[in-house]
């Protein structure tokens, strides 16, 4: 197949750039997940604890989620004063999107915890903070982790968009293909690497989830 030899040739010539793009891609995709995960826990807690917060926070989340990523990458510099080519714009935009999704899943997860279990914990003498970290949070994890998986996969895919404004990532393989007159090899390499990265990240989260929530695997639970 001529196509595969084209792919091989492209990789032989450009493997250094491709590798650099891959590493940069991983940073840009996963840093926002980590930041938003840390931020989503207190926010999700607040949404469940203080009912009046629920509506404004979830509405704001869904509005943020509605904004096209390219538009947000380009509008952020005007708001926070960064340069238009600064990768920070991408990190901030993706953090906002991730947070928008994770706040909702964290709140859903915490709300899904069986109140009888919480009451049993209280009855046994747990103080609120300890109860939250050792009973409520672990039981909410399956739902929260499901949100984390979606966010991670979405981020890996979304980072590619930043190539349109000249930021280095696997997306540059797509724009490169375009510049070469819709030359397929770099586009396919970009697609394959991006999907593999998403699958790998997803599998790692699933593995971690299995380790931290062993009870969810036994019995009928998902």
């Amino acid at each position: 197949m001529e196509f595969f030899s084209d792919v091989r040739t492209y990789l032989e010539i450009n493997h250094e750039t491709v590798l650099e793009s891959l590493v940069q891609h991983i940073w840009l995709a996963l840093l926002p997940v980590a930041i938003s995960f840390v931020l989503a826990l207190p926010l999700g807690w607040a949404v469940v604890r203080y009912g009046w917060l629920k509506h404004p926070i979830l509405t704001l989340s869904s509005v943020i989620y509605t904004i096209p990523s390219l538009a947000l990458f380009l509008a952020l510099p005007a708001i926070i004063g960064t340069s238009i080519l600064d990768p920070l714009n991408v990190v901030i935009a993706l953090t906002l999107y991730s947070l928008a999704l994770l706040v909702r899943t964290t709140a859903d997860g915490l709300a899904s915890v069986d109140q009888q279990v919480v009451e049993a914990a209280t009855a046994m003498g747990y103080k609120p903070a300890r109860r939250w970290f050792t009973v409520e949070l672990p039981l909410a994890l399956p739902v929260i982790m499901a949100g984390l998986r979606i966010t991670t996969v979405a981020n890996v895919s979304m980072v590619t968009v930043s190539a349109l404004i000249g930021i280095q990532s696997l997306g540059q393989l797509f724009t490169r293909g375009f510049q070469l007159g819709f030359y397929a090899p770099p586009i396919v390499i970009g697609l394959v690497l991006s999907v593999l990265l998403a699958l790998l990240a997803d599998s790692i989260i699933v593995l971690v989830q299995r380790l931290v929530t062993p009870w969810a695997r036994v019995g009928g639970a998902r």
Binding site: I150, G171, F182, A184, L191, S194, V195
Partner: peptide, 19 residues
Amino acid sequence: GRALPTLGVVMLVLAIVGV
């Protein structure tokens, strides 16, 4: 659909079908 980057899909379709 969730794992495939939109930009890549569009570029690939254009590379196959034309502009």
